[in-house]
């Protein structure tokens, strides 16, 4: 902050010590929450069970820990969403269904050691440690639009690896037509899974040509640092031309298949969430229009772009009726 001072002559002087430490700032809700829980406990004079939860650490911004990150040409020329907003407004039902729940509860997720099972139609199946999965690749920063099916959007600088590059290491067979992903299931680490809001584990899938498209990445970080737990640490999918729910978080299994996999939201409400789920302003959700979206931080809605502005993927769907295969 200090070094920027001279650039703006009229800027009010802010002393470094007056700026709230980021960690502290991110923990303010936790403070309120624990205060509320403590007050509630005192009032009810109940057991210590609930208080234990108040100690959940929301992911403190880790040191980068990612090593070398290359800038990529894939970067939208739009302002990125505030880090605070991107890490406190999340849909990650494994930690609760309110937008603030993941930031509040994801501290219980242990992201190391972590391994990913690679299964199905591959020449070299196996269980791979997170580090071994990442090591052979160069990390790239990709600033993508993220469009949620709920008609809000963000712009996020991800750090990741093209999904295709990772998949190819495991020698997909000629029968590999689809990729299926699964999130961790662990009620202890993911308290939202104690209720069957969705059919756990969370599952997502892509057609092979979608998975191999250079825009599709497996992300390990955002904003130049490791992924916060609430954003899908340690490893998540990012498919920027599809609605956010396709970009599955905290992946523990990748299975290549000949047939189209079942996917969680499609199973839960097939009329509302399709397998393809390409961002499409022409095809409305049954309960709201998809023509416009609110960029987080903006007041007015803005028009939603076909394929979220990534029209280079349109050729993947050349002969498909996107109203039918929504």
């Amino acid at each position: 902050m200090k070094s920027r001072g001279p650039l703006i002559l009229s800027a009010p002087r802010i002393l470094a010590r007056e700026i709230t430490d980021e960690t502290l700032y991110l923990r303010r809700r936790e403070f309120l929450y624990s205060a509320a829980v403590t007050a509630g406990t005192l009032a009810l004079a109940c057991g210590p069970g609930e208080v234990a939860n108040a100690g959940n650490e929301p992911a403190a911004p880790a040191e980068s820990g990612l090593g070398k990150i290359e800038k990529s040409a894939y970067a939208v020329d739009e302002p990125t969403t505030d880090f605070k907003d991107a890490t406190t407004y999340n849909n990650f039902y494994e930690f609760g269904t309110d937008k603030e729940d993941p930031a509040r509860h994801a501290g219980s997720l242990r992201t190391r050691p972590w391994s990913v099972a690679i299964e199905g139609e591959v020449g070299k199946p196996g269980v791979v440690a997170y580090e071994d999965l990442i090591k052979p690749h160069t990390l790239e920063e990709r600033t993508y639009r993220l469009r949620c099916v709920e008609a809000w959007s963000m712009v996020i600088p991800w750090v990741g690896i093209p999904l295709g590059a990772i998949l190819k290491r495991f020698d997909p067979t000629s029968k590999a037509k689809y990729v299926e992903f699964e999130t961790l299931v662990d009620k202890e680490q993911m308290p939202g899974q104690r209720r069957n809001v969705l059919d756990w584990p969370y599952r997502e899938g892509l057609r092979m040509d979608e998975a191999l498209h250079p825009l599709a990445i497996l992300a390990v970080g955002m904003y130049g640092r490791e992924l916060p737990n609430q954003n899908g640490a340690p490893l998540r999918l990012v498919v920027p031309w599809k609605y956010g729910f396709k970009s599955i978080k905290s992946i523990v299994k990748i299975r290549l298949r000949e047939t189209q996999p079942n996917t969680t939201w499609n199973d839960s409400a097939p009329r509302e969430y399709g397998f393809f789920a390409n961002v499409n302003p022409e095809v409305d959700h049954p309960r709201w229009s998809q023509a416009r979206e609110r960029r987080i931080g903006d007041f007015r809605r803005r028009p939603t772009l076909p394929f979220n502005g990534y029209e280079e993927v349109a050729s993947l769907y050349r002969d498909m009726d996107l109203r039918k295969f929504f």
């Binding site: 309960r287 709201w288 229009s289 809605r301």
Partner: peptide
């Protein structure tokens, strides 16, 4: 006023076509 900023076309569409609204 806040969500649709008086976009009456969109509001009317919601009210008429979306059962939840």
């Amino acid at each position: 006023a806040l969500d649709y900023f008086f976009d009456l076309g969109a509001i009317l569409e919601d009210v008429l076509e979306r059962p939840f609204v």
